[in-house]
Design a protein around this nucleic acid. Structure first.
Lengths: 122, 122
DNA sequence: CGGCATCCGCTTCGATACTG
DNA sequence: CAGTATCGAAGCGGATGCCG
């Protein structure tokens, strides 16, 4: 074998689970935006763009549960809630960022492959 | 800013798309198994374990379309079909493997965070 | 052996309306 | 401002049966 990839069952299952966790429609967008520092709910909503309140709430609750973000409530009127990446959240951003860079570099190759595939069976 | 993460909108969208593509239930498992070399349909099915015919077909078609795997048909009786990772597929395995290693190392931290979160609001 | 067609339940996501 | 509650559409994924 020329390239050694960790493709044993155990590892693959771990990847699969984390990818499904992080592979929903909004999670990485939210985590990505929070990478720049703490943000308020609607601030985050505007930054991400196109996300409904429901989905932002759901996404943030999930991230909070898994220990990727912290939620700080200021009991003021009007209320203010700050979300911030935890240490774990920042660490997650490293491999996710690497995957993101790969994605950015190779979107054209994927698009080309798609065009070819769709074309040959048109 | 202490840590420089690429969290601009463009990059995040790219990550999001590729993660949704690869973040379905079976894709990484299949790609992972194919990392060891070409495999036949039912061989792959057995190796992955728990996947239905339909989902394996769907997953493989998607991977083929995006240029991650090749499909080679031997017109014999009974038919034989080999699937193999392309160069692009092997390259994808690198950042995905990194994320996988991260996942393997940090599952305990996530589980602990979950237990704590679920416990405090029981 | 390696599919495709069909049905069907579950989850995901969005839109809308209401609350503290 | 930052949610919660409810509804409905769409898509994913499993089970089954048929085919070349």
């Amino acid at each position: 074998m020329l390239l050694r990839h960790p493709h044993n069952t155990e590892d693959c299952r771990a990847v699969s689970e984390i990818l499904q966790r992080v592979g929903d429609k909004w999670t990485v967008l939210v985590v990505g935006k929070l990478g720049g520092g703490a943000m308020r709910f609607n601030e985050l909503r505007a930054a991400v763009g196109g996300i409904s309140q429901k989905m932002l709430t759901t996404t943030l609750r999930g991230l909070e549960r898994d220990g990727f973000v912290t939620r700080k409530v200021f009991p003021t009127i009007p209320p203010r809630v700050d979300y911030e990446l935890t240490e774990l959240g920042h660490e997650l951003l490293v491999p996710v960022g690497a995957l993101g860079e790969w994605a950015r570099k190779n979107t054209e190759r994927v698009k080309a492959a798609r065009a070819k595939f769709d074309g040959t069976r048109a």
